[in-house]
């Protein structure tokens, strides 16, 4: 065990800020609730004169409290909007480990967290190119042919790029998913109508794959099973509503297509 100490009130407040920032960064980038709670608790209790560390994390906020000498510190952060970023999760994880075992000053830590929040590993174009490729390969995996592959690539590339623009307006996840699914299935119908794609269902399945909340649903069920019921429920609800939004988007286009309006 190490013997790093927190000197005074000011430093304790900064520690609170640091741990909350680390937790917020984790949660914003798609980490599971137990990882966020664990990271914050470890970071605080690594300092010798910090006691009774408790954290509570839901899908929409992180809460943290600890005692330093005879004072109790309580604070929380509201977290809005999550987007998957595995690199930042990895970096915060590494930083929290360093922080526990090395004597990193808290100001330094705050700078590191800020740097982590600003790291960009891939540009939007990279993401669109690779995300579209992934979707196109899904079309093949579900039994599409080469024409469907090309159609699905074009459709999902266009959809990802357009969705990048709409995220600027900070719409809610529901509208974004709805719009994404709507555009993806509309473009898919167009590729079939102009004769590029062959199997409409395979193209749509591939193209909506980057929207489908598979990871949130999995994480939600994991949270529920490990006892974080509130997080699991809220995350699961969000995932179910994303799925409903996608289903609406696809459903509208499908019913138009089958009704013979888009032909």
């Amino acid at each position: 065990m190490n013997h790093f100490k927190i000197k005074d009130n000011d430093e304790a407040k900064k520690l609170m800020k640091l741990a909350l920032s680390a937790g917020e960064t984790l949660l914003k980038n798609g980490a599971e609730a137990y990882r966020v709670e664990d990271t914050m608790e470890r970071m605080c209790s690594s300092r010798e004169n910090i006691h009774n560390v408790n954290s509570f994390v839901t899908q929409t906020g992180v809460f943290l409290t600890f005692e330093h000498e005879d004072k109790t510190y309580v604070n929380f952060r509201r977290v809005r909007g999550t987007a998957m970023n595995l690199k930042r999760i990895h970096l915060v994880n590494q930083f929290s480990r360093d922080f526990v075992f090395k004597n990193i000053s808290i100001d330094e830590g705050l700078n590191i967290i800020q740097d982590i929040n600003n790291t960009k590993s891939f540009t939007r174009l990279d993401k669109a190119v690779f995300g579209a490729a992934a979707c196109a390969f899904f079309t093949l995996m579900f039994g599409g042919n080469l024409r469907d592959f090309i159609a699905s690539y074009l459709v999902s590339f266009l959809t990802v790029l357009l969705l990048n623009i709409t995220t600027e307006f900070k719409l809610t996840f529901f509208i974004e998913n709805f719009l994404g699914a709507f555009l993806a299935s509309l473009f898919s119908c167009i590729t079939v109508v102009i004769g590029l794609g062959a199997n409409l269902d395979k193209i749509i399945i591939g193209s909506i794959m980057h929207l489908v909340p598979g990871v949130p649903i999995t994480n939600a069920i994991r949270d529920l099973m490990s006892g974080d019921s509130l997080t699991g429920l809220s995350k699961g609800m969000e995932a179910i509503f994303s799925a409903v939004a996608i289903a609406f988007g696809v459903g509208i286009v499908l019913s138009l297509y089958m009704g013979g309006i888009i032909r």
């Binding site: 990882r35 990895h90 994880n93 269902d201 990871v215």
Partner: peptide, 25 residues
């Protein structure tokens, strides 16, 4: 690296996107 970094891309292929589509269909 944390296990999530590998597990999330690993399970994505199993996500039942097709099932969702056919349900709606």
């Amino acid at each position: 690296k944390p296990a999530t970094v590998f597990i999330i891309p690993g399970i994505i292929a199993l996500v039942p996107g097709a099932g969702m589509y056919y349900t709606m269909f």
